[in-house]
């Protein structure tokens, strides 16, 4: 059974007489232990989708099943109980400004009726997990963005949830803090086996920690699959745009259409060596770089380059073997690559 199952989800907002279809016919299955990315441009409906998962937003049509339970049939009280099994963190952290760090982490337990003393023991434990044990007396206004998000994560984990929903959890943070938060999430997923759903508009977040991804465009699910597959071979325009940025999408294909193209993929060990300049120096022949890109895929730096090489078949063969000796993966480029 999937941990989260979304079936034919539709959400329509009515404002001042006219209706906005925020989500249309979304079908998704998120498995136990997944780090599932949901990516899309601003206004695509990501927040609405993630808020539907814990029924903060009631679907207009369709079903949400958590561990097989259709949330539609739960009473208000049962629904609140269910929500306490689903942690959530936000772009703006949403900490209680008038409570200190420790009391913030205790808060969901207090709501759940856990005794204060017990709650504090649990909260201290969690603050250790997120590396903030020395900040328990501090107030949110005294913390940095990254620290606030750590408190929010500790708070979301307080009730021992099975699922953690993250709505743009790193969008307000600088790149360095973003990676530290992402590795914390990865650690949590790994150590506690919590299923994590990550909403973002940044592909880098998805490639860094997610194993699966869904792409939402204009309220519709346009592509879904493993991160590797989608990164290597995006099908939808939205996916291409999110992976390569707007400009590359409009690069005329003709540019690549010579017969002498090769695609080389760098892995971590070779990514930082000046292979191309060495190649040119060695063979004294022109080599054009048609496309180049480096990414972090699941923690590994992976680069991709498309080169146009000389017509001469012998030189070409020598070049390929040279590149392979350097530890690169070399493939020929055909038209539908």
């Amino acid at each position: 059974m999937s941990e989260i199952e979304i079936k034919n989800l539709k959400k329509v907002f009515e404002i001042k007489g006219h209706s906005i279809i925020a989500l249309d016919n979304i079908n998704l299955s998120i498995e136990k232990g997944d780090i599932f990315g949901i990516i899309g441009m601003s206004g695509a409906g990501k927040s609405t989708l993630v808020r539907s998962i814990n029924y903060l937003e009631k679907p207009t049509e369709g079903q949400i099943l958590i561990d097989g339970t259709d949330l539609f049939f739960l009473s208000e009280k049962e629904l609140r109980k269910k929500r306490s099994d689903i942690g959530m963190i936000f772009q703006n952290f949403n900490l209680l400004e008038q409570k200190n760090v420790l009391d913030n982490v205790c808060f969901p337990l207090e709501i759940g009726g856990v005794k204060k003393k017990e709650a504090r023991v649990r909260a201290r434990e969690l603050l250790r997990t997120v590396n903030l044990e020395d900040k328990e007396k501090a107030y949110p206004s005294q913390l940095s963005g990254g620290q606030k998000q750590r408190v929010a994560i500790a708070r979301a984990l307080a009730t021992n949830p099975r699922i953690l929903l993250c709505d743009e959890a790193t969008s307000a943070l600088d790149p360095q803090t973003t990676s530290s938060i992402l590795s914390l999430l990865k650690e949590i997923n790994h150590n506690l086996g919590i299923t994590i759903v990550i909403i973002t508009h940044q592909m880098s977040v998805v490639t860094e920690i997610c194993n699966r991804v869904a792409i939402i465009d204009n309220g519709r699910l346009v592509e879904e699959g493993s991160v590797d597959t989608i990164f290597e071979n995006p099908q939808s325009d939205a996916a291409k745009e999110l992976i390569s940025g707007k400009d590359l999408r409009f690069t005329p294909l003709k540019k690549y259409e010579t017969d002498n193209r090769i695609r080389i993929v760098f892995k971590e060990n070779s990514a930082y060596e000046p292979v191309i300049s060495n190649l040119i120096l060695k063979f004294q022949k022109p080599v054009n770089i048609l496309k180049a890109d480096t990414r972090n895929v699941n923690g590994k730096a992976v680069g991709e380059m498309i080169l146009s090489v000389p017509d001469d078949a012998v030189t070409r063969g020598e070049m390929v073997s040279y590149l392979e000796e350097e530890g690169l993966i070399v493939t020929e480029v055909t038209d539908n690559a």
């Binding site: 814990n54 903060l56 609140r80 109980k81 269910k82 929500r83 306490s84 689903i86 942690g87 959530m88 936000f90 703006n92 949403n94 900490l95 209680l96 400004e97 808060f107 969901p108 709501i111 759940g112 929010a152 009730t159 929903l165």
Partner: peptide, 14 residues
């Protein structure tokens, strides 16, 4: 802040 209320709702607060 509406966000704080939303966070409390997500924790199952009545």
């Amino acid at each position: 802040d509406k966000g704080v209320v939303e966070a409390a709702r997500s924790m199952g607060a009545s």
